[in-house]
């Protein structure tokens, strides 16, 4: 009997605890998939940095709360949010319908196109079903780029899915991949501007179709945390007003 009482009390405490947490967050934990340069990555001395990180910290400061960053591999990032391993995802997540069914998004804070990248000596000019036929394409598993490449070219090309962007770049460097499909800022920083070798963009920037590329990048919350999302939206508007947002933006996306 006593044992059941203990379980009941524990259950009651859990319910009370989560009810309390719902009201006001004084401390927000962000889930983030690292590395994804320049959005989120570590400097040589191990410090976490990037556009998302700086903007997230600035938002927390604006709201007068503290925040911390928890690393989570991309393919488990939404289940991790649901499992309460963290309170929000700020990891270059694009708003699209599939995800909107699972999470609550803040206002978009950035729009980035995706692009195909290939070694400089590659002969492909425009990626389509004919030119990609039989080639090996690299994407990060569970990204919108994965969905797009799988649905459009999965039948003609060999799509290889990587757990981390790092593993994918390593295979690009070693010549295992003919093309990779990533969001443009990441490809620019990690391939075009890097010492890894000579790479170029193949074809146009890709922003369509809408079901895949959606409305831009936003912070994701659990659906019931509407109040928290609202507070972040207000803070984001304030930062855009005051010019802090532009200052952080220029830090990472100066052409």
């Amino acid at each position: 009997m006593q044992r059941y009482l203990g379980i009941a009390l524990l259950g009651a405490a859990l319910v009370a605890g989560s009810a309390q947490a719902r009201d006001s967050y004084e401390h927000v934990r962000f889930g983030v998939d690292v590395p994804y340069e320049p959005m989120e990555y570590r400097t040589a001395d191990g410090e976490l940095t990037g556009f998302d990180i700086d903007l997230g910290n600035a938002l927390c400061e604006q709201m007068g709360i503290t925040c911390e960053w928890i690393e989570q591999q991309w393919d488990g990032i939404i289940p991790g949010l649901m499992a309460r391993n963290y309170d929000a995802i700020m990891s270059s997540m694009t708003i699209n319908e599939e995800r909107r069914a699972q999470v609550l998004f803040s206002d978009a804070y950035l729009t980035v196109p995706s692009a195909w990248f290939a070694p400089a000596e590659s002969e492909i000019e425009t990626p389509d079903e004919q030119t990609l036929d039989g080639l090996t394409l690299g994407v990060q598993r569970g990204t919108l780029q994965d969905s797009y490449a799988t649905d459009f070219y999965g039948d003609v090309a060999n799509v290889r899915r990587y757990a981390t962007a790092d593993d994918m770049l390593l295979d690009m460097e070693s010549g295992r991949l003919d093309l990779v499909f990533v969001n443009y800022p990441v490809g620019k920083t990690t391939l075009l501007d890097s010492e890894r070798g000579d790479y170029r963009v193949v074809g146009e920037m890709i922003r369509e179709p809408y079901e895949y590329f959606g409305d831009g990048i936003a912070i994701a919350f659990r659906p019931r945390d509407e109040a928290l999302a609202e507070r972040f939206n207000e803070a984001l508007a304030e930062l855009q007003e005051s010019g802090v947002y532009d200052e952080i933006h220029d830090r990472y996306f100066r052409e």
Binding site: D75, G76, P79, G142, R161
Partner: peptide, 22 residues
């Protein structure tokens, strides 16, 4: 599947990541 091979576990990971249904 850690080296991108789509074996059984690779297929499960793909479905998991795409539909968020572990």
């Amino acid at each position: 599947s850690v080296v991108t091979l789509m074996d059984l576990t690779g297929a499960a990971r793909f479905v998991y990541a795409r539909f968020y249904a572990p």
